[in-house]
Amino acid sequence: MEVLRLPLSASHKGKLISAGYTSIASLSSLSPSHLAIELKISETDALEILKSVSDGIGLPSTSSSVTIVNGAQSAWDMLQEEETLVHITTSCADLDNILGGGISCKEVTEIGGVPGIGKTQLGIQLAVNVQIPYHYGGVGGKAIYVDTEGSFMVERALQIAEACGDDMAEYSRLYHKGPQACEVKMMQAKDFLENIFYFRVCSYTEQIALTNYLDKFITEHKDVKVVIIDSITFHFRQDFDDMALRTRVLGGIALNLMKLARKYGVAVVVLNQVTNKYSDGSFHLALALGDSWSHASTNRIILHWNGDERHAYIDKSPSLRSASAPYSVTSKGIRNLTSNKKRIKHM
């Protein structure tokens, strides 16, 4: 028993063992308060135990700093981590450009816009693109698609998946320029569909339950790299007379989603509707669910019409400059706008 080797008092050792903590690993991810309750000791004692445990492990030398609180990171570590952060391409180069490579994993990204602007299209595109294998520059993961509105059309997903498969075939043909290109195992449209876990949610109760369940689901399916919720809004715009309750429930969901994003390194993409907001004597468009919800997402992208072009605008992001880029929705999915005008506009 590893615990016996720790420099602790005999009574603490006894308590640890009787509570079932025999290995150092079992203690390494505990919080002091949790341990204190379980061993019925004071929190200072619990902290003392945990300290000696972390000293005992002699912390792996990857991080130069000493971890004071479990889970804490130095900004330097975070920077390094961010450099390895993967992005899911949107298939539109201009959009990827302003997003710094695509939708980033480990973050919650909210995408809003008027009906028919292409929110669902972008959602389906991401569910397909997350599956692009590593050697094609993708993430090689699976997708969870939570459909609250019933707008997900398999025919459309199939169409986008086929186009994505074709693009990959084209790429490998250009890249290898030889007969061995044929040897690369191609992904069929069918495979793409098989890797999308589709949940149809019919009420807000189901939606809350599903958000809570996703944690477990992702532990069982570790290769899930994107969670798309299309849309977060629909069920929360009915039956809620008590707006304070709605805010609390949505706050809970937001927390859960953020936790998922961090814990499993998945990209969480939340689609939102727009609504008319009345302020200063005039109406203007704003994303639905109110001001408190706007804190729920790390990045916020607004899709809007600009004349006859569809544009995406980064409304909020801690790391990206606000910029706008045009995109188009084609039969193949989301693509660049084909025109010669200067496309990216920085603000």
């Binding site: 969870i144 398999v154 025919e155 569909l193 098989e194 589709y198 949940f199 149809r200 599903l210 689901f217």
Partner: peptide
């Protein structure tokens, strides 16, 4: 809760 298998769905889309 279990996810739907999308491969089975096209058969049902009417």
């Amino acid at each position: 809760m279990t996810p739907e298998n999308l491969l089975l769905r096209p058969a049902y889309r009417q």
